[in-house]
Design a protein around this nucleic acid. Sequence first.
RNA 1: GCGCCUGUAGCUCAAACGGAUAGAGCGACGGGCUUCGAACCCGUAGGCUGGGGGUUCAAUUCCCUCCAGGCGCGCCA
Length: 524
Amino acid sequence: MIRREIERLLNVLFPAEKIVIDSVPRGRHGDYSTNLAFLLAKKKHASPMKIADEIAPMLKSPALSRIHVEEPGFINFEIALDYLLKNLGEGKLLPVIKDRGRILVEFVSANPTGPINIVSARAAAVGDSLVRLLNKIGYDAQREYYVNDTGQQAEMLAISVARRMREIAGEPGEIPEHGYHGEYLIPLAREIIAQGGMENARLKDYAVNYFVERHRETLARFGVVFDRWARESAVCAGEYPETALRKLRAAGKVFEQDGAVFFRATDYGDNRDRVLVTTDRRATYLLNDLGYHLHKIERKYDRLINLLGPDHHGQIKGLVSGITAMGFPAELLEIIIIQHVSFRKDGRAVSMSKRTGDIFTLDELIDQVPVDVIRFFFLMRSCSQHLDFDIDLALKQTDENPVYYVQYAHARIMSIIRHGRQQGIDIDAAPELGLIEEPEEIDLAKQIGRFDEVLEDSARNFEPYQITYYLIDLARNFHYFYQRVKVVTEDARLSRARIFLIEQAARVFRQGLEILGVSCPDEM
RNA sequence: GCGCCUGUAGCUCAAACGGAUAGAGCGACGGGCUUCGAACCCGUAGGCUGGGGGUUCAAUUCCCUCCAGGCGCGCCA
C-alpha cells in the first residue's frame, strides 16, 4: 500500500518517466527506493546525486516519514508507521480495484484417454490459484477445461477399450502401438461388459465421458472445480473451425498444396506453415483449436490465459499467429508453459509416460500425500522452473516441511489470541496503535503491509509462487517477533495493541493460503 | 540441424520491469524452553551467479558466443 502511494507521488511530478520503485537492501536506511534520479540524469546531463538532492525536498506524503538521498543517486523512502498501522486497521490489505476485466483461464485440459498425470496436476494447482488470486483483487476470472473428444485420439481410445474387453472375454487381441496400454482401461472395459457391451460409436463417447467424469472427481479431490467444461465436439458442431478458416482465408493467409489446406504461419515467424485441413478433408487440431478460441473470444473476455504442458510449446506459435491473422490483438492471448515435474520417491525417479502405462497419477499422489502439501509444493516454484517433487520430504510432518511452518505461524497466533482473551484482554476495544514501537513489531507491520504488493506482482506475472515465498517469509518474520516480543502481558493496553498487530498477520496468512488453496487451521 | 526451457552455496531454490553488500530452506557445526504453542528461535561456515566477450553510471538480469542438461520439432492431439 505504501509503494502505490510513492508511485502516485512520483507520477504526478514526472508522468513521462518509467519509474521503478524497489525495496531497499537490508542494512541500509529506508524501505523503498527509486531510480528516478538516474533516469533524469541522462536527459539533463547532470549528476544523479545533484538531481536526487533537488527532487527529494519536493516529495511529501503522510505515508512517508523520511526521504533521503544516498550515493550514487538513490532516493530512499521510509514508511510512516502511523500511516501504515492506520491503513492496516482500516482493513486495506488487498489491492482490490473494481472491474479490472474478464479473464478466462484454460488449464489442465488433459486428454480424456487416461488418468490425470503429475504435470497436469501442477497446472491444476497453478491455474486454480491464479483464478483465486485474480478474483481476489478485482478481476472476474473463470476456470475452463477443454475436452479433446474428437479426432484420432478418441478413436484410438475406443479401439484400445474394445481390445481390453476382448481380452477380458478370453480372446486374444493386441492393443495397437499408438493405442493406450495402461491398465486403467480395464475397469472401464469391465463396466461396459457389465452393461452388455455396445457398438463402436457409442463406446467412444462412453469412454470419453468416463474419463471426463474421473477427471472431474480427481480435480474435486484436489480442490479444483472448473466453471466450464468445453467440448471440442461442441465447438465443431457450432462450426467455429469453419469460421476460423474463413477468417484466415479472408486475410489471405491460406493456401493449398498437395491436396491439403495450409495456414501461412511462416508470415508470423513460425518455422513452417501449418496444415489446417488434411488431404482426406479432416480438420487438424490447430484448426479446431482456432475455432475454440473464436468461441472464447465471442464470449467477450478481456484476456485469455492458457496453461500448457512443456510438450505443447511447439503449438504456441501456430495458435498465436492464427489468432493474430484472424485480426485479434496478440496480447489477448497469454500462454504460460508449466514446466516438468520430476518425481522422486525413496530416492528413485518415477516415470510418468502415459504410453508405457507406468504412470504416476494425481489420484495416486493424493492417496499418499495430503492435498495441502501437494498444492503448496507445486506453488513453491515459478512455472518456468522444472520442479523436483520429493515425496519423502512432502510426507514429513516436521520443520523441514514449509507448509507446516506457515500453518504453524497462524495456529500460534490464534493460540496467543485465545490466551489473551483468557487473560482478560478486551479484543473488541480499539487498539492504541501508538504503543507499537519495538523494531520487531515495526518489521512485522511493514511486511504485512507489503501483502498487496505481492499480490499485484504475482497477478501481473501470473506467478502464484511469489505468494508462497512471501508467506514463508512472513511466517519467519512472525516467529522471530514472537521470540522477542511478548504479546500478552500485564499491560492490557499494550497487549491489545500487539494483538491487533498479530491479528493482521493472521489475516494475511488466511487470505494468502486461501489463494494457494491450502487450509489454514486455528489449531494443529 | 532448428525452436523453447534451464544452469546461482554440498542439495532444493529466491532475487518482476537492469540497481546498492546475491538471499532463504535443508544438510554441517555451535547455542537457546520454570514465561503467550520448541512443528520455534539465534549464531558460524559455505559463492569468479556454467566459461568467455559486449552494452551500461550500474548486469544473476539485456546482447553475442561456447559448454552442459531437459523438452519439442506429424496431413497426432
